[in-house]
């Protein structure tokens, strides 16, 4: 990997973050130079969504923070500075909670749930999709394409409602909502972790089901192409074991585009499964976002959006850096 490429790629990442932050700054101010903070606080107070005693302290805090008497460009530069130091300000609805703190509390839940389910879904789906396109796989595996396609077509939150109803409500196998049992102390103990695990089964199941379909579908297409490649034919002619050809020649090559997609998807999980969290009242970032939307808590909404965009940009960048390790044909050094 060349130094030159690294610098360019990091610059691209910073540009994306800057653009996202700028949109976040200017869109609410697009009107006639109004004071977005006070205006929104007013709305909130009017609809009773805000504790009155917090308002004055908060307006003061914001005025100091943003220097609202200063010219717009100074405000903008301050805002950018805050963004890049991850200072996201105060929550409008829950003053004096800080946005960064709220997101920080929620992120481990989201990452834990999403990362595990997406990886399981990816592994299962990739394998099933690859097998469904492999000529010497059993017939029943090759006939799985249609049900897998159907699964991938249904959004995970809808699958979530269904599993919640059947496994949670009717069979009472799993708790209906939350990340852990209410009243239980969130301390690191085996009991607590088991409880967390128990709570995560249903939301994870919903995501895994949809992810399996999604990855299987993509993998199937890639595998159809790959299984016709000359190197597969030669590997067979050379008497390699079917299993070896499948994994090290077929799967390994067909998976390359899937891995790029996985990078994007890992980043998108946080965003994409927001609604699953809402349905299961899971204490992750999706629920934070949902509550913020319900309370018109714009600083929190903007903060979540910004963090999501940043994390996705970061993961995509890392994927770009690591991809040459997986595909020797791609190289970031200049070739002659």
């Amino acid at each position: 990997m060349s130094w030159n490429y690294t610098v360019k790629r990091v610059a691209l990442f910073l540009i994306v973050v800057w653009a996202a932050a700028s949109v976040n700054f200017f869109v609410p101010r697009l009107g006639t130079g109004r004071d977005p903070i006070r205006e929104k606080l007013g709305q909130l107070a009017a609809s009773g969504g805000l504790r009155q005693d917090g308002i004055e302290a908060m307006v003061k805090a914001y005025q100091v923070k943003f220097g609202l008497d200063k010219p717009l460009y100074v405000q903008y530069l301050n805002f950018l500075g805050d963004t890049f130091t991850l200072d996201l300000g105060y929550s409008l609805a829950n003053y004096p909670a800080r946005v960064g703190q709220m997101i920080g509390n929620a992120i481990p839940w989201t990452i834990g749930l999403m990362l595990v389910s997406v990886l399981i879904g990816f592994a299962l789906g990739t394998l099933m999709g690859a097998l469904s396109a492999w000529p010497s796989a059993p017939r029943f595996v090759r006939n799985m394409a249609v049900p897998l396609m159907t699964l991938s077509a249904i959004p995970p939150y809808l699958l979530g409602l269904i599993v919640l109803y059947i496994l949670g409500l009717k069979l009472e196998l799993f708790p209906l909502s939350g990340g852990y049992s209410p009243g239980r102390l969130a301390i690191a103990s085996v009991d607590f972790y088991l409880d967390v695990l128990h709570h995560s089964v249903l939301p994870a199941l919903a995501i895994v089901m949809q992810q399996v379909g999604f990855w299987a579908l993509g993998m199937r297409g890639m595998m159809v192409t790959t299984s016709g490649e000359d190197y597969i034919t030669l590997a067979e002619a050379n008497g390699l074991r079917n299993r070896t050809i499948f994994f090290r020649f077929g799967l390994r090559n067909a998976m390359l585009p899937q891995l790029t997609a996985l990078g994007l998807s890992l980043a998108n999980v946080v965003a994409g499964q927001v609604i699953v969290e809402v349905i299961f009242a899971y204490p992750g970032i999706g629920t934070v976002l949902f509550q913020a939307i319900q309370a018109s808590d714009y600083t929190v909404i903007n903060g979540v959006v910004l963090i999501l965009i940043m994390s996705i940009g970061l993961v995509t960048m890392l994927m770009d850096f690591f991809y040459p390790l997986l595909d020797p044909r791609i190289s970031h050094t200049r070739q002659n």
């Binding site: 976040n24 609410p28 965003a271 939307i293 018109s296 999501l308």
Partner: peptide
Amino acid sequence: DTLLTVPGLVVLVSIASTIR
């Protein structure tokens, strides 16, 4: 290519919540 790396739903949330 740059825009595609930005998560769609999040951007939509941001737009939609502004003009809710």
